[in-house]
Write a protein that binds this DNA or RNA. Structure first.
Lengths: 239, 239
DNA sequence: TGGCCCATGTGGGCTGGCGCACAGACGGAT
DNA sequence: ATCCGTCTGTGCGCCAGCCCACATGGGCCA
């Protein structure tokens, strides 16, 4: 099974939503890249050279505090892109981006992106709308961190992650996940145990699989649905 | 003392940073408006008609959870604008914006803003850079909510608020402030008491004045400085 | 097949922030 | 000058989530 036959840029929903003529303008510059768990796409202050459009990979954007604690501000999967600072003008951000699920994506050179963005067509419009959705997502995360329990946040994270997955289970250790959410590993272990007992999820060393999304939704806060709804409002072509 | 003699659009730092020719294109459409404590500039889902450029007023953007709890995601003063969803394309947002400090600002009709934004000049560039700064601010707030104590967050809030003020004290009750930060009123009372004792702030019924910003900084988390630094990096013309 | 590393399970003690309840006191309005 | 509503002070008990320490066991590699 060759790589060429199984991968296509239109697996990324943003790219898929572009009108054909607009897509053709950049398609030659789209470069398929493997994205491996732990790959650091950018670090604070580092100049970006590419924007990434994940297809099967998932990326986490997060902040690191001065004491070393982490907090994921949002995830990016096939519904989005990484590197909005390229067209927003800042070229870099104070946050970090790391691959959270191994997979593939397409990257686009800074120049090509700017060129396409600058022509004020559908691509610009789409990227700005996606950025607005991203803002809503980050803001929702802030409220979620402030008010919701670990159980709620964990459910929310699981649900939004399966939405970004074609299928199958996640290769994530509880340790890593706790790090992303900025909570103790033990707290995750405890909640995960409850969820397994309830039949919502299954897991073994380094793997989590969602068995009952509906059940999970009863545990999640409204943030999951709110973010999804806003993305659908802004970019109805997606999902 | 007439209103005309004491108010000018260039009291807003974004407007002031525009090149003269660019500023002239919109200046005729800028309308001075009073902004009173509690004024709701927009609610979730409500179609915006104007963008606001505060001069002496301060606005809070916040989320309300399904249980009625609030969480401020960011504030906007003379350094920024309210209503980015107008040029981002979504026209509305799931958040709310309310005036937190009485003052004035200039508003600009949706049409005029779009027209100026669409010409891809310095104004577009500036608004996008400001939006990126806003994203950084919201993301930092998320991390802050996750990891920092009420004392740290309170200090941070006070410091970033005085930065938006020409001078003088704040007309804010502890109750309102607790609501914004999404914490108990009693928690604010307690920390405020400690700060007063330390000589950092003074207050009486509904008023807070910052006496020792340097002292407050020793209590604040890095978020205050980080946000300020990022704004300075993206828009060096401002402060 | 055996060994080792790292992910997961479990328990105990601690504390920041919550919820509730009520007392005092400032200050605008009559 | 008085009154009353609202803002501020304070004291409980409570619990989610923290930090720390250690036991167990799965899975990869030699």
């Amino acid at each position: 099974m060759s790589v060429l036959s199984t991968h296509s840029p239109i697996q990324n929903q943003l790219l898929a939503a572009l009108p054909a003529t607009e897509f053709d303008r950049i398609s030659a510059d789209l470069e398929l890249v493997p994205m491996l768990l732990g790959d650091m796409l950018y670090e604070p202050g580092q100049q970006l050279r590419h924007a990434y459009f994940p297809t099967t990979a998932i990326v986490s954007l997060y902040y690191v505090t001065s004491t070393g604690a982490c907090a994921e501000t949002t995830g990016v999967g096939r519904e989005g892109m990484v590197g909005i600072s390229l067209f927003m003008g800042g070229n870099t951000t104070p946050s970090s981006a790391v691959v959270q699920r191994t997979g593939h994506g397409y990257r686009l050179k800074h120049q090509s992106l700017l060129l396409a963005f600058g022509s004020a067509g559908p691509l610009q419009r789409m990227l700005l709308l996606y950025t607005q959705a991203l803002i809503a997502q980050i803001a929702q995360t802030a409220a979620c961190y402030r008010h919701h329990s670990i159980e709620q946040q964990f459910s929310r994270w699981l649900l939004s992650t399966v939405d970004r997955l074609p299928a199958g289970d996640l290769n994530v250790t509880q340790e890593l996940l706790a790090g992303l959410l900025g909570v103790r590993r033990e707290s995750i272990t405890e909640v995960a145990g409850r969820f397994r007992e309830a039949g919502y999820i299954g897991y073994r060393r380094g793997h989590i699989s969602i068995l009952d999304p509906i059940g999970l939704q009863t545990c999640a806060c409204e943030c999951y649905g709110a973010v999804k709804k806003e993305l659908g409002r802004l970019l109805p072509q997606i999902a």
